[in-house]
Amino acid sequence: MTPSREKPIRRGQGGAPGACETEDDFFLYLDTFFVRDHPSVELGRGDDCAVLNLPGRSCFTTDLFLEDIHFRTRYFTARELGHKSLAVNLSDLAGMGVRPSGFLLDLIAPKNRTLDAAFWDDFFQAMANLAESAGAVLAGGDLSAGPCLGMAITAWGMPDENSAILTRGPASPGDMLFAVGEFGLARTGLARLESEGREAQARYPSAVAAHCMPTPQIEAGLVLARIAGKHGGVTGLMDLSDGIARDLPRLLRFEHGAALDIPADTLHAEIRAHSAETGEDPVELAVLGGEDYALLGAAHPSVIGRLEQEVEGLRVIGEVVEGEGLTVNGRPFRQSGFDHFGG
């Protein structure tokens, strides 16, 4: 339900969200998209601090989303930016197997150009739609002008009753590795967008959507946490955001190696089509990945059958092994994927 406003919003000409003249106008503007009431929030937007009512253990996560670092406005729509800036945080919560509760939004509006009311309407509507579907409330945040468009979101969630909170490790040799969701598809979308702009959407619609409008695997995370809480056997889980090659050692806490078995014909058709056109190895592309926002996990062989039955889209991709390093389809894989500080 959209809350009512006590007074009209004043529209200005600057780059402020909703083209509002003041920060007070902006808070009223947010009320047209985001509800205030939520069981976990005692006092929400509009005061110096939010007051949360969290009855037990909670997980918090935060992510930056900055123009020309994480996205380009030349091919991202306002709707996609609003969705993805929240989705990347919800994916972290999915990686812990917890249910989203709320989030804080810090927003930088570019002072060197005007983003009109239509842009901000689309941006906030998409964010609000995702928040509503996930059960998360906007509890507060901050607003500033700055050199570029940027968002920083802090989100939190709580485990369901009798469910585990899942973490990276402590997998052991012999445990099976699995993924939920596509990997490599977002990398394909990014490559096509960088080379073709939005024209890429005509031939690579799934890849473009995977990069611009990722779907956090919230339900899969909750099911995995419920199985782990009742039966055990899930020995690690994480959000897959920097690609398998970079994230898998993190999942294993740099203590073990892994042998992956990923036949090319199991990859999404658009990954294979892109690779055929560019001459890339589709499996290598998929393992390098990046911004997949899938789930990557490990489990004891005794529970894998249950996981495959109960978690939609889960597939086994390999095994934890003694020693160090990564092999893919029997060959050493030495590339390491994306790193913000890796050049």
Rank of each mutant, 00 (worst) to 15 (best):
E308D: 06
P205Y: 07
L54R: 09
P173S: 11
A299P: 08
G232N: 09
S133K: 14
V234M: 08
I262C: 06
E23M: 10
F333M: 00
E80P: 04
P332K: 15
R79Q: 14
G343V: 06
L54K: 02
H70M: 02
R250N: 11
N53T: 08
D37R: 15
G232W: 10
P147F: 08
L149V: 01
P55M: 01
M176Q: 14
S241D: 08
D31E: 14
P3H: 04
F34N: 02
H268K: 04
D37G: 08
W156G: 02
G233V: 05
G14T: 12
N53I: 01
L93T: 01
R57M: 07
F34G: 07
D339K: 14
G141M: 01
F183G: 01
C20T: 15
N53Y: 07
V287S: 01
T73D: 04
T114H: 09
E324Y: 07
I262K: 00
P205D: 10
T22C: 08
A273G: 07
F26L: 10
R72A: 14
P249M: 00
S206T: 02
H38A: 10
M151R: 00
Q335M: 13
D116P: 07
M127E: 10
R168D: 10
D48I: 07
G95R: 14
S58K: 01
H256E: 04
T188Q: 10
A139P: 00
G169C: 07
D239P: 12
V41W: 02
N112H: 15
F124E: 12
A228Y: 03
L248F: 03
L260W: 05
S172P: 03
D92W: 10
L326M: 15
T215Q: 09
H340C: 05
V98I: 01
F341M: 14
G297R: 04
M1C: 04
T215W: 00
G318P: 11
A186G: 03
P282K: 04
R79W: 01
G56H: 00
G343T: 05
A94L: 12
G189S: 05
A202T: 11
V311P: 01
H231A: 06
Y204L: 12
W120H: 15
D47H: 13
G197K: 12
G243M: 15
P170T: 02
A299W: 12
V320L: 03
A220Y: 05
P110L: 08
P39S: 14
A179W: 00
D63T: 01
H70F: 12
R192L: 08
P173L: 05
L248Y: 08
D48Q: 10
V41Y: 03
G150Q: 09
E132I: 05
G318S: 07
L314F: 03
N112Y: 14
A259N: 13
E67F: 11
H340R: 15
L54F: 02
V88T: 03
G330E: 11
L224F: 11
E308I: 07
E270C: 11
